[in-house]
Nucleic acid binder design. Structure first.
Lengths: 162, 162
DNA sequence: CACAAATAGTTGCGTTCGCAACCTTTTCCG
DNA sequence: CGGAAAAGGTTGCGAACGCAACTATTTGTG
């Protein structure tokens, strides 16, 4: 039995409905979800997405560096650098040169940064939950299993440090 | 045994691993997949992502307008406008003012545009297949069911014309 | 020890993007 | 009919981004 989409045919106009094309669907979905979340970050905390990712990465870690953030989030290092600079200027983080390797900067949240983090994280998790609530528990499990699978295939899983 | 993520706790530092946060995972995955696909579009056909999406939308349609593309792809109308302008300049599309409503422009692929489309679509589908091949057929079905679910919840499904 | 290669991080520059403002044409309604 | 509002589409402008080049420090190797 054929699956949902007819097989590609070697004729003049091969069938492609963009709305059924998984790469496009992932992009559209990710953009929509991000937009909803970014409302919280921006309107209520004055953060943009790179800044939120830096906060979220530094928050639970100890002795975190910009390089580590860039690798684990797959953001370009200049994006990370600029986000950190802005967060430091806002008094949410501190940058201290590591005396063991003076190229590195140890990153930490300030008291104000930890307060913002503690306030923001529950809201983010709540939004995630209300989004995922449209699926049954079993369906969600299968969906995240699919994500795991794709991430592993593409080398995005945690273990891979590039 | 704990499930993957410990439940949120109302203490100073609620646990959030960005790598387990679905909105972030979707963004990272979509970016990675897009990057791989964009290689084809750019290197072999000189298209960027907005241009590819316009081509892919106009290809199978008849009497398509910029507005329709913007709605169905959820791209900003300026992005669509600029992509169309560039494609027209390259001789891949034509813009004809609709005589019934002279605000609209009817979009069509030129012969060269159809040729490029016919060449590109199979490559795109092939890439999609090789990506999705990391899942079993049943797992893929469950995964796309999850996508359907999220898209419907967010109002992204085809039916919704905003 | 010295010098080349590698790593952490920053900055200048050109490109892309989204917002707002704008032009044109059509629709809505008194 | 006629003017206001709406809709399709384009453009100016400022912000954000990635690439490449750069500085500073460390590591590797003869």
């Amino acid at each position: 039995m054929e699956s949902k989409r007819p097989a590609p045919q070697p004729q003049d106009a091969p069938p492609l409905q963009l709305g059924d094309f998984v790469p496009f669907r992932l992009n559209r979905l990710a953009a929509e979800v991000s937009e909803h979340l970014a409302e919280i970050y921006r309107a209520r905390f004055g953060l943009d997405i790179p800044e939120w990712r830096v906060m979220a990465t530094v928050g639970p870690e100890r002795g975190c560096t910009a390089q580590h953030i860039a690798r684990s989030t797959r953001m370009h290092k200049t994006r990370v650098s600029r986000a950190i600079a802005h967060l430091e200027k806002r008094g949410l983080m501190t940058r201290v040169t590591n005396s063991a390797d003076r190229r590195e900067m140890e990153l930490r949240l300030t008291r104000a940064g930890r307060r913002l983090y503690a306030e923001l994280v529950p809201l983010a998790l709540e939004r995630e939950n209300s989004l995922l609530a449209c699926m049954s528990r079993e369906q969600l499990r299968a969906f995240t299993a699919g994500l795991d699978c794709l991430e592993t295939f593409l080398g995005l899983r945690k273990g891979s440090a590039d």
